[in-house]
């Protein structure tokens, strides 16, 4: 597996690092999507990481909404 995927994963890891640098330089670290992104990194410390990241970026509420929210899904849920 390492032979097969290391270079690809290495490249994506550097992309994540560069993305975080870029957001920091642009002063957008307060954006809830970025804050949730940083929180989701915590899932990398335990097994089932992909599932963990997806869960941390998900809407944790239960029951249907009164009305569909405007606009498309954005990939993170503002938990603050």
């Amino acid at each position: 597996m390492v032979e097969l995927y290391f270079m690809d994963a290495r490249s994506k890891l550097i992309d994540i690092a560069a993305f975080m640098d870029r957001v920091e330089r642009s002063g957008e670290t307060g954006d809830y999507r970025y804050r949730e992104f940083v929180k989701a990194l915590a899932a990398l410390d335990a097994p089932d990481r992909a599932e963990g990241v997806l869960n941390l970026l998900s809407d944790p509420s239960e029951g249907p909404l009164e009305q569909a929210g405007a606009g498309p899904a954005v990939g993170a849920y503002n938990k603050d």
């Binding site: 997806l54 869960n55 970026l57 998900s58 809407d59 944790p60 509420s61 239960e62 029951g63 249907p64 498309p72 899904a73 954005v74 990939g75 993170a76 849920y77």
Partner: peptide, 13 residues
């Protein structure tokens, strides 16, 4: 099933 942050809740519902 819904996209992105809505998927987990939507799949359960």
């Amino acid at each position: 099933t819904p996209h992105l942050e809505d998927k987990f809740k939507g799949t359960k519902l």
